[in-house]
Nucleic acid binder design. Structure first.
Lengths: 331, 331
DNA sequence: GTCGTTCATGGAAACGATTCCAGCAGGATT
DNA sequence: AATCCTGCTGGAATCGTTTCCATGAACGAC
């Protein structure tokens, strides 16, 4: 029984076994020119020794890791989980590893993770940015290939996002059509853009825009619950709630039950992001579906693309009507 | 404006700027011995140049990447998402990056990913193993530090798992107490161990054990749905269903609705894994809660631990009774 | 027959860090 | 005063790969 740890077989070993120089081995293995005879010898030796080139050596020489870094606020959130899945699925076809970091929507933690990425010489990074533009300065200066997903952080970085504005407008029109005049928005920090789209949608349908109808929560479930409960209690005149994400939607349903606010009789609810359980929920939730996986996949495609890239990719959203909205309640 | 890409500042630059040798710089920065005066000079120069040691150089020299690899069947599954979160949270305190791969419960893909890990010189890997023992041979021979999570793949690898057997026994006792005699188990591939525990639980309570009451599904949601629907149709005499995971539970609820099988009137359901939506579901689901995040965290702790490690860590599960189980229906 | 061109090949440098080892200064001990 | 020891320091080797460059052979053209 041999349970000793083997020394790694290197290109040198293969060269020796095949009776050629190391340069030739490297050339054959990376598809360079070589005579058929040598090629065969090298390949045979490599197979015999079960040789695997060390990514470390290669990366050091090339001064970059092919791999890609991925920064999301929360892996537990189904939306980001699907986004990650999309990125992984694209990266797999390139055979490149993906390193995942969780920012928790905290710019400081984000900056920390960016530092790690730079240390690792990651040259491709996909991120759902939480920090302001300047957090990303060092990353850009280090020359890494950056793509934002789900949010557009700064104008000079390409981004792949869902058509928030379109989805929100459809949802607001739908709610307005049901007679709702006071619609609240439960947002997550970092969704400034979505909040702006909400206001724009309100004024498009001719509803008054007030900042007091926007409530913010942090990334955690606890914070979401607190914000949702606060919203329902402090705004008894709001007859409809738009939840900015599935965690917020979940929190709203829970808080409503706790406070004995019935959906959709007392308050209507539209949630951003279609998740499997939205249909299982009681009542089934009307949602603005987002192509989370596609966002991840497209962002990965972009980050692998060498040449010039489109500054922005916008993917469509869709309002899926189920049973969580009804006519405005009588006060 | 300088938007040119900077050359990386190396230990050599710092040495030059501080007027010392490279060895001294390295020593100061990694906490070795140095006089207070030199230390200060080096630190100042490093700060001035915004020096960040390259992980590539370090890793090549050390012949290992500190980072950890993490292999799960599916990031979209809330259970594994939470497990990942636990691993990330522990890894963060060590400042080490985590590379995530998706196996899809496919041994072949798993072997492929193991290859990538070895190429990357990852020396720590946490995995939810899908392949048979021999898939992991190369990894062990390469000397990497391996810990299994959620499933125990082979005896010579430490594992962190939930107390499946205990949870199942409690659930089966509960269902038997409600009068159920024919309990079906909807399992995922790779859950052989859980299936065995199910059989054991049945015989403990004195119910007949038949392999026909166990139905298998693959990792995808589609496969889960098909399996659930098949189970409900082909086993009309089964009055209770145990779903081996949250995706399977979700599929069972959907299939039941589609087939007009009412829960819990027609069939009782217990699902493995407590997810936030279990409470929102109609009816709220009785579940066997698993500490998914803890499993990940503990596995990460283990993989970082240098010395000898316990061969197995078993974390408790808990039956959370909600409203998806009722007395045996009359046929 | 000689020259120029093409092609395969191998040695050596480079990437950026860590670490071994030798050198050297300065103080304590005999 | 000679010796030893301790503590700092810097040069050089090393990790495993890629790639530049020089060398040599083969071959066609003049």
């Amino acid at each position: 029984m041999n349970d000793g740890i083997q020394r790694r077989t290197t290109v040198k070993d293969v060269a020796e076994a095949a009776g050629v120089g190391v340069a030739t081995v490297s050339r054959v293995l990376s598809g360079g020119q070589a005579s058929a005879q040598t090629r065969e010898k090298v390949l045979a030796a490599a197979a015999r020794l079960d040789y695997r080139p060390s990514a470390l050596g290669r990366n050091l020489r090339r001064r970059r890791t092919g791999g890609i870094g991925l920064l999301v606020p929360d892996v537990t959130d189904s939306f980001y989980a699907r986004l990650i899945d999309g990125v992984l699925s694209c990266a797999r076809s390139y055979g490149e590893p993906v390193t995942v970091g969780v920012t928790g929507d905290d710019p400081e933690r984000e900056a920390e993770l960016i530092g790690t990425m730079i240390e690792q010489s990651m040259d491709r990074v996909i991120a759902v940015p939480s920090g302001d533009g300047e957090t990303w300065g060092p990353a850009l200066r280090a020359g890494l290939n950056l793509v934002f997903a789900d949010r557009r952080g700064r104008a000079d970085v390409p981004s792949v996002i869902a058509d928030d504005a379109g989805g929100l407008l459809t949802a607001v029109e739908y709610l307005a059509g049901l007679g709702h005049r006071k619609i609240a928005f439960l947002a997550r920090h970092g969704q400034a853009q979505r909040v702006a789209a909400f206001s724009a949608a309100l004024s498009t349908v001719g509803l008054p825009v007030g900042p007091d109808l926007v409530v913010h929560a942090r990334a955690s479930r606890d914070s979401a619950y607190a914000a949702a409960a606060g919203l329902l209690q402090r705004h008894p005149d709001a007859t409809a709630v738009l939840a900015g994400g599935n965690v917020l939607g979940e929190a709203t349903v829970l808080a409503a039950r706790e406070l004995d606010v019935r959906i959709p009789r007392d308050v209507s609810l539209v949630m951003f992001d279609d998740v499997p359980w939205a249909e299982l929920c009681s009542p089934p939730l009307t949602v603005i579906a987002q192509p989370a996986q596609d966002i991840g996949y497209r962002a990965a495609e972009l980050v692998f693309r060498q040449g010039r890239r489109p500054p922005r990719v916008i993917l469509p959203t869709e309002l899926v009507v189920r049973a969580s909205c009804g006519p405005r309640r009588r006060i």
